[in-house]
Amino acid sequence: MQHLDLDRLVLLALSEPQEPADADHLAECAGCRHDLESLRHVAELGAEGPDLGSLPAPPERIWQRIEAGIAPAETRVVRPRRSRWLLPALAAAVLAVAGTVVVLQRAPAETVTARATLTPLATVPADAGGTVRVLSDGEMLVDVRNLPLTTGFHEVWLIDPDHPTKMIAIGNLAARPDATLPVPPGVDMNRYRLVDISDEPHDGDAAHSGHSLLRGTLTS
């Protein structure tokens, strides 16, 4: 049996009309049918694009989160990076020279072990945002701005991004833009590192409403 030659199959795959001789052979030969099918499929995939060269570069913040994610655990939470230590210490020293003691009094409790920048989800106005700092004493300082008004309240959650159904409710923001909330002891902050601020209705249901407003990942 004389098979269809491969130039011919490629032509047919690129929607060249079949001659009667092509059709006759294809009707009998599973091998050529298979080749034609796969070439046709690849041509379809090719025609569907996209042009990879024109995709925008991903934002740098994703890389920063990747970097934080691959850092060894000890540097991630237990030992803050040196630059972060030096700055507050320096600031405290300057203020001390200027005669202020407020910073020095609070300094021991204010070692930041992790922080997150909260960014709005797609449905939330772009100027909404916030920051989260976790202190060595287990307190979490949450500061938000321009959240959409709610008829309920804003709740702070810690989510395990690898298992997004695993989440811990930390507390609500009441009507204030900032709050200090205790993180329950024993929470693994390497795991529950995604901070989520949600809009919760007063419906007596303690579960997450599914309506997230801001999110950010804790990094040291």
């Binding site: 991903p58 913040r61 994703i62 990747i66 994610g69 989800l121 797609a122 991004p161 690898d162």
Partner: peptide, 19 residues
Amino acid sequence: GNRADAEDVTQLTFVAAWT
């Protein structure tokens, strides 16, 4: 279909690739 989740998954992908 949503940017925040897409960025999360991109992050998870490269962290998983590393691991």
